[in-house]
Amino acid sequence: MPRSRPGRLRADRRHDPRTWDGPPPARIHRLSTPSSLAIHRAEMLSTDYYVYPGATERALRRYRAFVLSPGHRTVYPQEAHCSCRGCSLDDVRHARDVLDRVLRQLPARARGELRRRMAALDAAYLERTLPDPFADQRQWRSDLWWRRRLTDGREGW
């Protein structure tokens, strides 16, 4: 019986996650094309309910819009009224949760680039919000620094 070539055996077993049906995704604003593709790949392969194709870009836009809102007043994150995928990003803290989940799934180079983009936003978030001394009693995830901020009042006021 003839022997199968090793390449043929590997080709039968391998599913290449780098190929997708349809056109390539659009580049995420202020990120390189390879990092945007790595993020798209991580979103496609994720089993997390809140990480889906396009979630990183939406969360990044939401986080940027919150921390770079006009004025120099203190801002307060608002609770989301619904916990579905789309409405949950109304809470900027959940948008930061999504970004953190995606960061953990990325390869080193894309992770570093996204982390650098988020560093300035994180600094602005810390500057524009106030610490919550009772976060241990109020928050379900008080171990995350962005959840240890006051949430009273309407967002932007």
Rank of each mutant, 00 (worst) to 15 (best):
P2R: 12
P2Q: 07
R3I: 08
P6I: 01
R8P: 02
R10T: 08
R10F: 04
A11W: 00
D12T: 04
R13V: 05
R14F: 07
R14L: 04
R14V: 02
H15A: 09
D16L: 12
P17E: 00
P17T: 00
P17R: 04
W20I: 11
P23S: 04
P24L: 07
P24Y: 06
P25E: 01
A26K: 08
A26P: 15
R27L: 11
I28Y: 06
R30Q: 14
L31N: 08
S32F: 03
T33C: 12
S36R: 15
S36V: 14
I39E: 14
H40W: 10
A42P: 11
A42S: 08
E43K: 08
E43D: 03
S46G: 08
D48R: 13
Y49E: 09
V51N: 01
V51I: 14
V51S: 03
V51Y: 02
Y52T: 14
Y52D: 09
P53N: 01
P53R: 00
G54C: 06
G54T: 06
E57Y: 07
R58A: 12
A59T: 09
L60R: 05
L60A: 07
L60V: 00
Y63M: 00
R64L: 05
R64D: 12
A65T: 05
F66G: 04
F66V: 09
L68E: 04
P70N: 12
R73P: 01
V75Q: 11
P77I: 00
E79S: 14
E79A: 14
A80W: 00
H81F: 07
H81G: 15
H81T: 07
H81K: 10
H81W: 05
S83N: 14
S83I: 09
C84E: 05
C84Y: 02
C84I: 13
C87T: 05
S88P: 12
S88M: 03
S88D: 01
D90G: 11
D91M: 09
D91S: 13
V92N: 08
V92I: 10
V92F: 09
V92H: 02
H94N: 07
R96I: 01
R96K: 12
R96D: 11
R96G: 04
V98T: 15
L99Y: 13
D100P: 01
D100L: 07
R101Y: 12
R101E: 13
V102Q: 06
V102K: 11
L103F: 04
R104K: 14
R104G: 13
Q105D: 03
L106T: 07
P107R: 13
P107E: 11
A110T: 05
R111Y: 07
R111S: 14
G112L: 14
G112V: 13
E113S: 07
E113V: 06
E113I: 07
L114C: 13
R115I: 01
R115C: 06
R115W: 02
R117P: 03
M118R: 11
A119L: 13
A119F: 13
A120H: 13
A120G: 15
L121T: 03
D122V: 10
A123K: 15
A124F: 05
L126D: 02
E127I: 01
E127F: 09
T129D: 05
T129M: 12
T129S: 08
P131R: 10
D136G: 12
Q137P: 02
Q139D: 08
W140V: 11
R141N: 00
L144G: 11
W146H: 15
R147K: 15
R148T: 09
R149G: 11
L150C: 15
L150P: 13
L150N: 10
T151I: 10
G153H: 09
R154S: 06
E155W: 03
W157M: 08
